[in-house]
Computed example of a mutant assay.
Amino acid sequence: MTGLLTRVMHDHADAAAAEVDVDEIISEGDRRVRRQRVRHGLVAAVLAGAVVAGASSVPLLVGGSHDPTAGGLSFRHRAATYAVGSSVHVGGHTFDVGRPVASLVQTDGGIVYTTRDGRVWHYDGVTTVEIGRAEGHRLRADDQGSLVAWVETAEDGHPQYVVHSTMRRAELARLDDDAAGPARAAGDLGTEVFAVDDGSVYLRRDGDLVRYDVPSDTEAALAGAEPGTAAEIVDVAYGALAYTVDGTRPGNRRPGIAVGQRPDPEGVALAAAGTGALSPDGRLLAADEHGTMAIYAADDGLDVTPTVDGYRDVVAYDWVGDDMATVLAVSDRRGARVTGDVLTCDVSDDACSVVSSFRDVAATDIVTAGGDPAH
């Protein structure tokens, strides 16, 4: 997920205000087998004083020795993961990292998060260690594996790409870039890490879209991408790329997100959106179309959005399986505070289940495991 929930919640909060009522790199074979398992992690946590039934609270003093893995938490199995303040919620487990979380991602080797001062931390279930500093609090990780990447500013002021393995507990790569600085907004051609997939990091380097292969320490411009393109890579999963198209090509007048094996200026937008999330196998694209949840089949554009009734605002912000989307559904909004549920929706069966609830939470305090900040 690359900013989907962040943007939606900001839009909804603004609207409400106007209304006053508002690895080590795992082997390809192992990874592909693991992708087929639906991960049934459920969100259960304490949000703004509202206790979710069934949550397992795991206290942690930063640098302490309490190991939540002893209570059954395995970071290798993806679960609905998010933070409120310094409390991080991973499935049925809750632990406190001692610092307010600005952004976070889940990896096989633990949680990687940023704090409000931009510092990057790795929590492995036992200890918390500082591992860097991320510009814009943006982190990127794969839906399986231990790699996490971000942009960091060097002492001379130039941006650098950093790739870290939470399983090896080591930095694997640091690449310099000659750009004037990190990206501050979509399309400004600044340095940016877009996605991590199968041991590769997708980034903008010297103004071009590039795939950097971590094991071989090699990089190549993405086939089909025009030099200096303002296109953005939205997400990458199982080799499939979700990318933006501007809708200015003959016969392709709809801007939005297209999906393919490479960026194609002639690509046809599946979703009229700028952010979204691909399912782990790359078959489905979840996006927010002007405040409305939409899920499309990547191959033929078929609308497979599950039915979710009884809520004011609904957005699919992550995936816990190839067909299982994680959905945030807001039932009530008062000013910038929201009440609602977290659902899992089986796209293949058009069925959704409530897995946790939140009450009277500031929309901008909800930080989901997509690597983007809430603010």
Rank of each mutant, 00 (worst) to 15 (best):
L104I: 12
T368D: 08
D303K: 03
G85S: 10
A17E: 15
R184E: 15
V268W: 01
V8P: 00
G187Y: 06
M324F: 02
Y317C: 01
R205M: 11
V88C: 11
G132D: 11
Q106I: 05
I111T: 09
S357D: 12
D208S: 11
A294Q: 10
D108L: 01
V148F: 10
A185G: 04
Q36G: 07
R76D: 11
D208M: 05
L5N: 02
G276I: 03
V308T: 05
V330M: 08
T114I: 08
Y82M: 15
A15R: 13
D30N: 07
H158E: 09
H12L: 13
P263K: 02
T364N: 11
G132Y: 07
D206I: 00
R334L: 04
G109V: 05
L284M: 11
L172T: 00
A271E: 11
V43H: 03
P250W: 03
S86E: 15
V112S: 09
D346W: 06
H137Y: 12
T6W: 02
R337S: 11
L222H: 07
S65D: 15
M9E: 09
D213W: 04
A325P: 12
L270D: 03
V315A: 15
A369T: 07
A225L: 05
G91R: 00
H164T: 01
G321C: 07
T229Q: 05
G91N: 04
D264F: 01
R249W: 02
L61F: 04
T128E: 15
P373W: 08
A149P: 03
A351S: 14
P373S: 14
A134D: 10
I25P: 09
H93T: 09
E266N: 14
G145Q: 09
S165G: 14
H290P: 00
S348V: 10
D21V: 11
G276D: 09
D23N: 09
Y317P: 00
A242I: 06
L302V: 14
I295Q: 04
I131M: 08
R78I: 13
G207M: 04
H66I: 09
G260R: 05
L270A: 06
A223N: 09
R35T: 14
G145V: 07
G190I: 02
A15F: 06
